[in-house]
Amino acid sequence: MQDDRQPILSVRNLKTSFFTDEGIVRAVDGASFDVHLGQTLGIVGESGCGKSVTALSILGIVPRPGRIVEGDILLRREPEDGQAHEIALTSLGDSSSEMRSIRGAEIALVFQEPMTSLSPVHTIGNQIIGAARLHRKLSKQEASELAVELLSLVGIPRAEAAIDSYPFQLSGGLRQRALIALALSCDPRLLIADEPTTALDVTTQAQILDLLRSLQEQNGMAIMLITHDMGVIAEMADQVVVMYLGRVVEEGPVDTVFGESKHPYTQSLLRSIPSIHSTPKVQLPTITGTIPHPYNRPAGCPFHPRCPDVIPGVCDKHEPELQSVGDEHLVSCFLYHPVPETSP
């Protein structure tokens, strides 16, 4: 990778587990990826594959009984009057004031449920002003002006009136826009959008995605877009990370991953998207089986029980590692790299 393209955020071998009474759930099990300014990284996978927990891990707000057990999360800071440096988020305490000054200010989150992601008994304005004044020295008046500005920026009509409305008075799409305005209140350099469009209808989805893209063009922030929808990824992402059971199985530029997908899981995912060219009334291919129970993770490659190309004796014995198969294209699969010598 070139020097001028330092990632703003790199996640290295992140492992986050939940320690429940029934057992340990490895929600994220060794994920690594980079996010660059001005670009969108798409993280895709079925529900329960650890996408959201990855987002919460980056922000250091994994709920109990979960915690990060291993790995590094490095945030690159480029102060205007100083030396660019990296700060390891994992070394900061979750509730330390440093971590809190990063949350919301440098990394912001748009959470998946527009219906419930805003407090029902506070006005939109109140919530945006509250967030803005946490990190910026603003008077109430200035913060309120900023809120109006942000609301009109995200395309909410009559923003002056909207700051006094309650979330339940807005439609789902407007609520999601308000949530984005809240996230933008401190001008973050990285916006994590966790399923921002899942609960919305199709036309509203497209509008929200357009909004995210135009916001990115305006302020050059990095976006980490988490979704289970390959279509959204194809439309939005520059880079793609495909996750399965907490592991990254394939990673690369969006064209490469879509055009020359290598991992059988990615291939299956792409095959199961309905396309305008598919033959009518012919059943779409599905991935056989279901995601295994989180307490009952298969040995070896986690995908092997459902994999059409499984190599018996290999995939169920050894864990594949993420290795390069081309320009910036990484895959973790024994079909593409050698099987390690039989371990003792």
């Binding site: 919460l56 509730s95 949350r103 200010a105 989150l109 419930t116 407090s119 008994v121 506070h122 949530l179």
Partner: peptide, 29 residues
């Protein structure tokens, strides 16, 4: 457990202010 708590937490609010400002206020009703 509601998502708006995660939203507030992700905005960098301290746990104490957050709990008192949002969920306690909602639960008061």
């Amino acid at each position: 457990r509601k998502p708006y708590v995660i939203t507030a937490r992700a905005a960098g609010m301290s746990e104490r202010t957050l709990v008192l400002k949002y969920p306690v206020r909602v639960a008061l009703n």
